[in-house]
Design a protein around this nucleic acid. Structure first.
Length: 298
RNA sequence: GGCCUGGUGGCGAAGUGGUAACGCGGCGGUUUGCAAAACCGAUAUGCGGGGGUUCGAUUCCCCCCCAGGCCU
């Protein structure tokens, strides 16, 4: 008799202290951590992503970190596979899997077992479609798959291209599969007041700069990571690349990056708002959180 | 003291005798293999203050205040 596997999830906007909380809970409840961060999956992106250090792990095994080369590009589907394997593995050893991160899309994919159309990226088609305007792409999609066209923003080329890519391979974009969560879930959200978060973001940025974040980016570039790719990776690497290219002064970079991270935190908040299963806590309320987890485990 | 230029939303910045572009920020949102990405939406009854001209002024005239520059 197999009971539904338990999965503890720690999520929330950036800079709220999720990683540290997760390690604490892992120690307390015999767990292991699965990272749900779309940038920490890449090797070498350490300081800029705030990747947890060996010391900070305090002996708790972490999964889904450093599983891809930053030149490549890991997709949700690939991430999901890694995460599912890790969760199963941890569970099979009688330990508690703890999924922690801020990438809502990734979390949702594993937590609700979302399946995506099995159409791999078609670079040739993509670059071809890229030539067209959003309007043209939208018109084309509306003809070929009116259903999907309904649900997509007509100006969003990236999504239009992906939809057309799926259509080209399978004829239509299937509606999202509605499977219930395969897990016995507890979702803990870490919440901080906006203004406090904003100053924490700024302070953390200063710390990362002192820790050698610029050197890290420079080194990555010298080892072959293109500035274009860094820009696509977003946030720290995006602004660092612009600075290294001489497009931004140090001051401009710090200023604009700080703002961009706060905006990112806002987008994360928007995403998580839709999941009403999340129980929100202040990160300092460690005891309350631990109590809630214990209650759920019982 | 005199002359010049300018005072427009949180910031930057257009503009017109007929009722306020745009950029940024802040706010809200979308999210079907790039998600730290990509994308969308709302956001000044108000144009330094007070008079006047006018059917009507933010836009024209007068006075005042403020900022910067120049001159004595």
């Amino acid at each position: 008799m197999n009971e539904t596997p338990k999965l503890l999830v720690i999520l929330g906007p950036t800079a709220t202290g999720k990683s540290d909380l997760a390690v604490g809970l892992a120690l307390e409840f015999n767990g292991e951590v699965i990272s749900a961060d779309s940038r920490q999956v890449y090797r070498g992106l350490d300081i800029g992503t705030g990747k947890i250090t060996a010391d900070e792990m305090r002996g708790v095994p972490h999964h889904c970190l450093d599983i891809a080369d930053p030149d490549d590009q890991l997709s949700v589907t690939q991430y999901k596979e890694h995460a599912e394997n890790a969760i199963a593995d941890i569970g099979s050893r009688g330990k508690l899997p703890i999924l922690v991160g801020g990438t809502g899309f990734y979390i949702q994919a594993v937590v609700d077992n979302v399946s995506f159309p099995e159409v791999p990226p078609d670079e040739e088609l993509r670059s071809q479609l890229e030539q067209q305007s959003a309007e043209e792409l939208f018109t084309e999609l509306r003809e070929k798959d009116p259903g999907r066209a309904e649900t997509i923003e007509p100006e969003n080329k990236r999504r239009l291209i992906r939809a057309l890519e799926i259509v080209a391979h399978t004829g239509t974009v299937p509606p999202p599969a509605q499977t219930g969560s395969p897990y016995n879930l507890l979702e803990i959200g870490v919440h901080l007041d906006r203004d406090i978060l904003r100053t924490r973001i700024r302070e953390r940025l200063e710390r990362r700069l002192k820790a050698g974040m610029i050197d890290e980016a420079d080194r990555l570039h010298r080892h072959g990571l293109s500035y274009e790719r860094m820009i696509e990776l977003g946030l720290e690497y995006r602004f660092l690349a612009q600075h290294l290219r001489g497009e931004l002064t140090y001051e401009e970079m710090v200023e604009q990056l700080g703002t961009a991270i706060s905006q990112y935190a806002k987008r994360q908040r928007s995403w998580f708002k839709r999941d009403h299963r999340i129980e929100w806590f202040h990160p300092d309320r460690h005891d309350e959180i631990a109590q809630r987890v214990a209650q759920w485990l019982a």
